[in-house]
Write a protein that binds this DNA or RNA. Structure first.
Length: 342
DNA sequence: CGAGTTTGACCTGCGC
DNA sequence: GCGCAGGTCAAACTCG
């Protein structure tokens, strides 16, 4: 991984015009240790048009409303069932991708969910579907029994894990925000800048591929992630993050020094570490929205499954605003490698 | 030897 | 009540 930086941050790249934030695109790719070289270039070539209406990362984060949304999505204690349901709609998205022809089966079974989300057969439709359950007040799932079920399940799972440590009566563990996304990769466990320890693996029903469970190795960091491969498309890895990092990217990255994040600015919450995972996926999606999903089976492209884009009107931000944002330090934390450029 | 992985056992809730 | 599935634990194991 180290030593790729020169390739990744080639400012004079002839394709620079394709992306307003071409280098950012590369950064995102590199966050997952997916060398964005030939494969990525080919992908870039395939993109028909990425015009100015696409938000740059800075633009995205400078969009106040969306920014707030992102924050709240993680900060807010998800006490209400509505929010839990919303969060677990993400799980459902994951399930939808995992289960073959999910859109068909769900739609056909008349007992399926009745929300717009019930039909998800591709990443793009999922992204669209997620527009109906924004990460923050995401919702509108009150009538979705399946989503409720999912929420309950996860709650139970948390209880279950306290095998020999019974929780005091009434104690209810707060559900953490979850974020699932798909990544085209031959590698199951993608490097994302954090160190993970595998603590379990389970066979997944109706899938030949097992699901792996990882925990962040940093002490007291509650973040977990599940990694599984879509059996419909084995080249797709589905990663689900849960929780928020309570620390910065560890300095002991395995050969991914360029991913190291600088110390957070005083006004930036530590948990933005989580947002980086979450947002980089989202942001990549904004650039990939028009790209075919299987452009390159081995290029490690990430296809987020949630986090809707703000309306175009909200995305428009001036360049000066971007600069302000950069100074603000937010972007650095989310895409730390950006500011590590020479 | 420490850190990480593997894997069988275990717990819990749900559906039948 | 039973079986199933998801999630987690923890001992044994591997690796650098």
């Amino acid at each position: 991984m180290s030593g790729e930086k020169g390739e990744i941050y080639h400012h004079d790249h002839p394709q620079h015009h394709l992306f307003r934030d071409y280098n950012e695109f590369y950064d995102l790719a590199s966050l997952f240790s997916q060398r964005p070289t030939a494969a990525a270039n080919s992908f870039l070539h395939d993109l028909p048009s990425i015009d100015a209406s696409f938000p740059t990362f800075a633009e995205y984060f400078n969009t106040t409303s969306e920014h707030d949304t992102v924050y709240r999505s993680v900060d807010a204690p998800f006490a209400s069932n509505v929010k839990k349901e919303a969060l677990h709609a993400m799980d459902r998205v994951t399930s939808a991708v995992i289960s073959n022809n999910s859109s068909v089966s769900r739609a056909d079974s008349g007992t399926g969910p009745t929300t717009p989300n019930s039909s998800m057969s591709s990443s793009s439709s999922e992204a669209a579907a997620m527009d109906d359950c924004k990460i923050d007040g995401m919702v509108k799932q009150e009538g979705d029994d399946e989503v409720k079920k999912e929420a309950t399940k996860v709650e139970e799972g948390d209880k279950a894990k306290k095998l020999n440590k019974p929780r005091s009566k009434g104690e209810k563990r707060q559900r953490q925000a979850r974020f699932a996304f798909m990544t085209k990769s031959e590698v199951d466990h993608l490097e994302d800048g954090y160190r993970w320890r595998k603590y379990g693996q389970k066979a997944v029903k109706n899938s030949p591929y097992p699901r792996s469970y990882y925990r962040c190795t940093t002490q007291k960091c509650p973040v977990k992630k599940r990694v599984e491969r879509s059996y419909q498309d084995p080249t797709v890895v589905i990663t689900t993050y849960e929780g928020k990092h309570t620390h910065q990217t560890p300095a002991t990255l395995r050969g991914s020094t360029h991913l190291l994040a600088p110390p957070p600015p005083p006004n930036l919450p530590l948990h933005m570490g989580f947002h980086r995972d979450l947002l980089m996926s989202h942001l990549v999606s904004s650039s990939m929205a028009t790209a075919p999903m299987d452009t390159n089976p081995s290029n490690g492209m990430t296809m987020p499954m949630s986090l809707p884009l703000p309306p175009p009107a909200q995305r428009m931000v001036s360049r000066s605003d971007q600069n302000q944002l950069t100074d603000y330090g937010l972007l650095q934390d989310i895409v730390p490698s950006l500011i590590n450029q020479p």
